[in-house]
Nucleic acid binder design. Structure first.
Length: 423
RNA sequence: GGAGAGGUGGCAGAGUGGUCGAAUGUACCUGACUCGAAAUCAGGCGUGGGGGUAACUCCACCGUGGGUUCGAAUCCCACCCUCUCCGCCA
């Protein structure tokens, strides 16, 4: 959500930033609506003020035992205008909200201009790409050969884009999540949280998934929606609050199942575990002071990188261009892990600074000691990491010629003595 | 699911139709006293929005949404949430 006041004062900057996102100018249209809304507000408030004043007089007169007939008649004369005036104000307000609610965050100044992922900028690479003296298999082939990854069983239960893991692979998924959580909580300053995965519409509005991206989500027949990421629950924990400045930054992490309809992804990544309707993810969320959010963004991304490094998985860091960034983000780093069978890097983490965009939508503010006004916090979120994709990366990068998987040393203590998963 | 109680400012807690955005206490901030602190005293102390260069002023908000009324924290209706007891249950 954007600041109307700011748009009023900087309509050209607003439109220029929208243009960077490939969107048409909307400043003028918004400001016209805004002017109409404020006029309606003034009109309706004027009526209310007159009514309040008259009512107060009536109260005083009655107390003095005087006649109030004349005044009451006077109020009645304009009172019936009030509902219409309020209605008009409400209608225009809703109209503005509808327009503003689907405008994405504006890109930060240092985000490169671009149309799509081809214009993203690679910032760094870590690790050496493993060389195999055999043809490396894909994770789903490896999993099937091990007899521990079953897409047909999942299809029987749930249809396409689900998986059943078994034995050591189920254990590996659990080990990875636990390894990640232990790092975040013990070394990275995050507090572990366990949150619902079913949420109300308001929460999804707060983080920006709604109203625009309803088709990407699953919803219940009741009024709940399934979260596509724990970013939704963790970030919305500070919704409708005024935090003490000293409490910032607030760092939270959670492992949850994530649910995505993958509408519009038909035909992409149809085999294997890359793109599932349900997957485990460890998420990091930071609620930061505006002055420190850039620093926090770097810190968060580094944390995700550390996990990949400890797992010995080659990756690169990408700075997303304006055309590839998510709706709520003003700057996003993606981490992409090397997948030998695909012979390319694939996204395994996305770390975004949303600035005050989400905070405005969910009214998450802070106040310093002695400050007169509240300010909006900055919200950041990042995967640390997508557990399913990390499992894929471990399988493919640590595969051996006999089809066995060597377990990265960092996971040994989590695997109950298993150091190699054999067919 | 059944029965009952309740949702008021950071917290506690008054307020059942009228100068109530809301007593009082506490916490917090400022000042006085003090070498300093405590105690004490005085003042201040919610959020969002409109108008105004400003001083300032207006509107809304007492769980949420409707309604009654000249006027609603207070009355009526619906919903949500919390607590207690009963039933069921991972």
């Amino acid at each position: 959500m954007h600041d109307l006041k700011w748009i009023r004062e900087n309509p050209a900057d607003f439109d220029a930033a929208l243009a960077r996102r490939g969107l048409p100018a909307q400043g003028q249209a918004i400001l016209q609506l805004d002017a109409r809304r404020r006029a309606a507000q003034t009109a309706s408030q004027d009526l209310l003020a007159r009514r309040n004043d008259a009512s107060k007089q009536i109260g005083i007169l009655k107390k003095e035992g005087k006649d109030t007939e004349a005044l009451m008649a006077e109020v009645a004369a304009f009172k019936d205008q009030i509902p219409a005036a309020e209605e008009e104000e409400k209608r225009l307000g809703a109209e503005i909200d509808a327009v503003l609610g689907i405008i994405p965050n504006l890109p930060a100044a240092d985000v490169p201009q671009g149309a799509d992922e081809n214009d993203n900028v690679e910032l760094k690479r870590w690790g050496s790409i493993p060389k195999f003296d055999f043809t490396p298999l894909s994770h789903d082939q490896l999993g099937a050969n091990l007899g521990l990854m079953d897409f047909e069983a999942a299809a029987k239960l749930s249809g396409a884009r689900f998986v059943v893991l078994k034995g050591a692979l189920a254990r590996l998924e659990r080990a990875l999540a636990q390894f990640m959580l232990d790092f975040h909580t013990q070394e990275n300053g995050y507090t572990e949280m366990a949150t619902p995965v079913l949420v109300k519409e308001e929460a999804l509005y707060g983080t920006g998934q709604l109203p625009k991206f309803a088709e990407d989500l699953f919803r219940t027949t009741g009024s709940h929606w399934l979260i596509p990421t724990a970013e939704v629950t963790l970030t919305n924990l500070v919704a409708d609050s005024i935090l003490d400045e000293g409490a910032l930054p607030i760092r939270m992490t959670a492992q949850t199942a994530c649910f995505r309809s993958e509408a519009g992804s038909a035909g992409r990544d149809t085999t294997g575990m890359i793109r599932q309707h349900q997957f485990q993810k460890v998420e990091m969320v930071s609620i930061a002071h505006p002055d420190q959010s850039a620093e926090e963004h770097e810190r968060m991304t580094s944390g995700a990188e550390t996990l990949l490094e400890r797992l010995g998985l080659p990756y690169r860091r990408i700075l997303l261009c304006t055309g590839d960034m998510g709706f709520s983000s003003n700057k996003t780093f993606d981490l992409e892990v090397w997948l030998p069978a695909q012979d390319r890097y694939r996204e395994i983490s996305s770390c975004s600074n949303c600035g005050e965009f989400q905070a405005r939508r969910m009214k998450a503010r802070f106040k310093g000691v002695g400050d007169k006004n509240t300010r909006f916090v900055h919200t950041l979120n990042g995967s640390g990491l997508a557990v399913g994709r990390t499992l894929i990366a471990v399988l493919e990068n640590y595969q051996q010629i006999d089809g066995s998987i060597a377990i990265p040393v960092a996971l040994h203590s989590y695997m109950g003595g298993i150091t190699v998963i054999r067919p």
